[in-house]
Design a protein around this nucleic acid. Sequence first.
DNA 1: GTGGTCTAGACCACT
DNA 2: GTGGTCTAGACCACT
Lengths: 129, 129, 129, 129
Amino acid sequence: MHLKIDTSGGVPIYLQIVDQIKRAAAAGRLKPEDPLPSVRQLALDLTINPNTVARAYLELEHQGIIYKRQGQGTYVCTQAPGAARRERHKMVAGLLEKAIAEAAALGMTASEIHSIYDQLMHRYHLEAV
Amino acid sequence: MHLKIDTSGGVPIYLQIVDQIKRAAAAGRLKPEDPLPSVRQLALDLTINPNTVARAYLELEHQGIIYKRQGQGTYVCTQAPGAARRERHKMVAGLLEKAIAEAAALGMTASEIHSIYDQLMHRYHLEAV
Amino acid sequence: MHLKIDTSGGVPIYLQIVDQIKRAAAAGRLKPEDPLPSVRQLALDLTINPNTVARAYLELEHQGIIYKRQGQGTYVCTQAPGAARRERHKMVAGLLEKAIAEAAALGMTASEIHSIYDQLMHRYHLEAV
Amino acid sequence: MHLKIDTSGGVPIYLQIVDQIKRAAAAGRLKPEDPLPSVRQLALDLTINPNTVARAYLELEHQGIIYKRQGQGTYVCTQAPGAARRERHKMVAGLLEKAIAEAAALGMTASEIHSIYDQLMHRYHLEAV
DNA sequence: GTGGTCTAGACCACT
DNA sequence: GTGGTCTAGACCACT
């Protein structure tokens, strides 16, 4: 579990934590029942206030990603098998739709979009085999 | 010029105005030297606070999209030929990159991404000819 | 809107606020689109910290009871007609079930329970007509 | 003596133990001078921390339900005849009052409450003869 | 050790 | 004016 906080971008710290932990769960780097660092420990690691970590954990609990065992610690929720995969799909589909809807609204042609898409896939080493 | 404001989604109203006017300019629906509605008029139309419209116009001015003529009104900036097109490209490329970077970070394969992409292109009637 | 906070009972202040506002909505004393007092104002009224009020409002927002309009204030959510009534039913049924399940577990007879029930209904002026 | 611990509901483990032992005494499943399992044994059975069992026993001692004999073990207190019955009555009356007070505060009518009550009595097989 | 609640007070974003 | 975020630090409950 390695989190990166960027205080310059205006994105709330607690949301950065939420996003990165959700992503780790979706990517499978965090598995069901894995323990998370304690509120205090993560606060020390990131040199932020424990309240801010607690806020992030509270949000993740509301979203059903993690749960707390009294006096013991915080753990990743057990999820139905395939949940991480579906979550991953949903995240990416949501972002892709934003991009394509925007392109459509701006009147771009399919081939213009394709060319941007191919370039980016190449840059991220995602060429088809 | 028809703007839609959604107060439910948590996106600042002034940003919704900024985005939609930028998009209109990038799409060519707003051309150089076209007049924009007055701050008061747009505030009345959208039933929002004039301060909010003023803030959006200020932001658009900072971004070089519009300019004010003393005592006359607000107009779309003259842009180098092709500027709208480049702007359009930049917007879509930015969004697409977000989606693809996320997919890469989540360890998705090229073919998984392709399948989502194709589905969405189809839904937005952007099939290749 | 008149809230009573009891700091002696060990019940978190923010939860007391949550409960009382939920109850007011279920009882119909708070109707859809009614404005709530501002975070600062309620904090002053109850002489508690604004953060504590904010915490209560956040929880109510998570539960879909209230929503915020940016820069304007906090309002009661529009609910399907009859929602308040159903909510009321659910609250009371939940509490009654706890009582009756406990009585059953303790091996009490129906007539013992009836006698307690009748006495209490009488005390709360809820006699049948 | 068979105790069930639910770590998911947020109810402190030590309170679950206290409640279940009080209930067993009120129901007559635990009689005066019956021995309780040792702290260590119960902790092993429930796979919880011995401190937690100790805390529950301490609480039960404070409430006059159990007592310790030096070096021998823990036992259920001798109670005045009828004490279990009165305790049972008090528990159920307390819970029923919560439910009925809430219903009254929410403006429910006697017949609404009756209908919920009858349904629940039926579900717990407590119909009048 | 773990997390939860609360205060005091600062600074920011939005309308 | 409105709510949102964050720090610093205290005290509490649970295991």
